[in-house]
């Protein structure tokens, strides 16, 4: 074989350092070092730094591709999705750490969190459709739609139905309580399943590797979001929640996928 496309050291480093940073933030928050205000600052700023780094790595990969390349748009879209999440977190941090207030739900950060789904979903779906000429895409699409719709229905029965029936929950909050699980299943889980079914047809082909990391990350985000919805409804969510670790690791995995895609760019041989 002329070239083996194993994952590079720098990609493993992205995964290792990202995971380590996320765990350190989580441990510091749980340990409560420096009291409540410091813990809150560490939790919020730690998330911004870890996920901000993930956004940087993803955008950097996107910009390595030429302007006409499909991969540039796919990864740029995913990167913009992560940037929107970071912006939401920055606003959240400003409200909680600088102003010392409880971030409202729904609030300004939700505008950013809500819009990220469109960009991430588009990036992953367009990447899956790019395989149209090479592998079957119709069956994977149908399978992912069926599983995602079933998951959305299950989430409605298990979580959303009870929140909607709760008279103490405001109308706007209820609207977001419907939006987030729906967006998680239809704009994150569906694209993730779609691309994982598509690239599974590549077997051990190296082009499948980046997307496997992305799917792992997106799945983790969808689970973290669902747990957050439940915790928020029960008024149990606070700094140091395991959900925060889930979000950070989810984005670290997506950045690892971006780095693995970067590994696939064969350097030009100088003449």
């Amino acid at each position: 074989m002329r070239s083996t496309h194993s994952i590079s050291k720098s990609t493993w480093l992205v995964l290792l350092l990202g995971t380590l940073a996320a765990v350190i933030v989580q441990v510091l928050v749980i340990a409560g070092v420096g009291g409540e205000s410091v813990t809150t600052a560490v939790s919020d700023l730690g998330g911004v730094l870890v996920i901000g780094a993930a956004a940087f790595i993803t955008i950097r990969t996107a910009l390595r591709f030429g302007k006409g390349e499909a991969l540039r748009n796919q990864w740029l879209s995913i990167g913009i999705g992560i940037v929107l999440y970071v912006l939401g977190d920055v606003v959240w941090t400003y409200i909680e750490v600088i102003k010392g207030l409880e971030p409202p739900f729904p609030g300004v950060p939700d505008l950013f969190y809500m819009s990220l789904y469109v960009f991430m979903g588009y990036g992953i779906v367009s990447a899956a459709f790019a395989y149209k000429g090479l592998v079957r895409v119709r069956t994977p699409l149908i399978a992912s739609v069926v599983i995602s719709v079933a998951s959305a229905a299950a989430l409605y029965v298990v979580l959303v139905k009870d929140i909607l029936a709760d008279a103490s929950v405001g109308t706007l909050e209820k609207a977001l309580d419907i939006y987030y699980p729906l967006a998680d299943t239809l704009l994150l889980l569906l694209p993730a399943l779609f691309i994982v079914f598509v690239v599974s047809q590549l077997g051990r082909g190296a082009l499948a590797i980046p997307w496997r990391f992305v799917v792992a990350g997106v799945s983790l985000l969808a689970v973290a979001d669902t747990v957050y919805q439940w915790l928020e409804w029960q008024e149990l969510y606070g700094a140091g929640s395991i959900v925060d670790l889930g979000w950070m690791l989810g984005y670290v995995l997506i950045a690892t996928g971006a780095s693995a895609m970067h590994d696939l760019i064969v350097p030009r041989v100088r003449a």
């Binding site: 002329r2 090479l134 077997g203 190296a206 082009l207 696939l264």
Partner: peptide, 14 residues
């Protein structure tokens, strides 16, 4: 053989 490392045996064949 050249395509296989990137897209796998089946897709390279196709």
């Amino acid at each position: 053989v050249i395509l296989e490392p990137y897209v796998g045996q089946m897709v390279a064949d196709t």
